[in-house]
Computed example of a mutant assay.
Amino acid sequence: MKWPSKKGEMCGIVVIQFMMAALLMLCACYPLVHDDHAFEILVGIALPSFQEVHLALLAGFALLGTFARRYMYSSLGLNMLLASLLLQWALLCNGFYNILPEAGGRFVVTLASLVRADLTVCTVLISAGLLLGTLTPLQMVVMGIIETAVSTATQRIGTRVIKAADAGGSLYVHMFGAAFGLAAGITVRHGDATAQRRSDTTDSFAMLGTVFLWCLWPTMNAATSVGMAEVSRCMVNTYLAMLSSTVIAFLCSAIFSRRTRFSLVQVQNASLAGGVAVGASCDMVLHPAGAIGVGLVSGFVSSMSYTYLQLFPSYDGQAR
């Protein structure tokens, strides 16, 4: 399939934006009951989560994707474009499962629904990080539209039918995003062979993104939890798991590095592995030692995967 030129791609993105606006005009509305006390409670709970999850989405994931030297600046811009456009689509996809008859067959848009949309778009940004230098902006948008629809449907089936608990999004956000990105990369089978080349500057920017996400990850895992006890457990378990995964990431990078020194490239993702791994059970009553154990195992597995899996040839016949 031959894709349009850059001007044609921009026209396509504009058309998609107008379609999103039309769908939101027809299908979305604000809460019908205006209770100032209820809104005060909702804003007090949802506003901090919305601010921190949004910061992680636009700053953390954007900086984390700057590791590729050739696509450092385009990664920052493409991240904002994808987030701005797909957040609207995520609102629609999540809202279609929460249509209220009393609202005239529409769904309600609140701060809580914006938080859920942010977490849904995180799935797409994880996949997009695997496809730098492979897809054009319009192709990224089309992939994101498809992935968002499939992701929300999968989450609906998992939570309502299978009853699989996933408070922090380990299954429905991180694993789904990684699997979808790998499948898309294998399907496309072409791209820039130099897309993954790094430099000290890009690694420093990517490490800054890791620091952002490291600080905001406990709030991301607790964003959809209900009740102060669950929120507290989510944040404590996530924090403890990330402490241990960070330590083991630095140790593994020094032990298995060819020059026996810390490798920022390896630490960038392995230090976050604890927060990802503990997310599915972060609202449960884990012993502090259990959370630390999850972080140790996940940090070790992530470090070893980065060190040795890249030795295998990729789908284009080149070693990663």
Results as ranks from 00 to 15, higher is better:
51 Q>N: 04
135 L>R: 04
132 L>A: 13
114 L>K: 03
66 T>W: 12
16 I>C: 14
160 R>E: 06
214 W>Q: 14
75 S>K: 04
129 G>C: 11
196 Q>H: 06
48 P>W: 03
34 H>Y: 07
205 F>I: 15
53 V>G: 01
320 R>A: 10
287 H>E: 13
289 A>V: 15
113 S>L: 08
235 M>W: 01
100 L>T: 08
202 T>E: 03
184 A>S: 09
90 A>W: 02
106 R>S: 02
218 P>W: 15
44 G>P: 00
275 G>C: 09
129 G>Y: 10
133 G>S: 05
142 V>S: 10
92 L>S: 06
277 A>S: 01
124 V>S: 10
184 A>W: 12
287 H>L: 14
235 M>C: 09
48 P>G: 00
36 D>W: 01
266 Q>P: 07
167 A>W: 01
150 V>K: 04
158 G>R: 02
85 L>N: 09
48 P>Y: 02
26 L>Q: 08
116 R>L: 13
49 S>P: 01
251 L>G: 08
168 G>M: 00
234 C>I: 03
69 R>P: 00
28 A>I: 09
89 W>L: 11
22 A>R: 13
199 S>F: 09
190 H>K: 11
34 H>M: 11
61 F>V: 08
177 G>L: 02
88 Q>F: 13
286 L>Y: 03
269 N>R: 10
200 D>Q: 10
168 G>Q: 03
320 R>L: 11
196 Q>A: 12
302 S>F: 03
271 S>G: 09
9 E>K: 08
81 L>A: 14
219 T>I: 06
286 L>H: 04
178 A>K: 01
237 N>M: 11
35 D>P: 13
109 V>W: 02
197 R>D: 03
276 V>L: 10
148 T>L: 01
187 T>A: 14
119 L>D: 01
229 A>T: 04
211 V>M: 13
77 G>M: 15
224 T>F: 10
145 I>K: 12
90 A>T: 09
264 L>N: 09
272 L>S: 05
304 M>Y: 08
17 Q>K: 13
266 Q>H: 12
115 V>S: 00
132 L>D: 02
55 L>V: 10
215 C>M: 14
284 M>N: 06
233 R>H: 04
292 I>P: 09
232 S>A: 10
25 M>T: 10
18 F>R: 03
29 C>T: 11
8 G>S: 07
50 F>T: 03
71 Y>S: 15
79 N>I: 08
55 L>A: 15
305 S>F: 01
216 L>K: 04
202 T>R: 10
112 A>H: 13
3 W>K: 14
64 L>M: 11
103 A>Y: 00
49 S>L: 03
171 L>K: 00
11 C>M: 13
293 G>Y: 03
162 I>P: 00
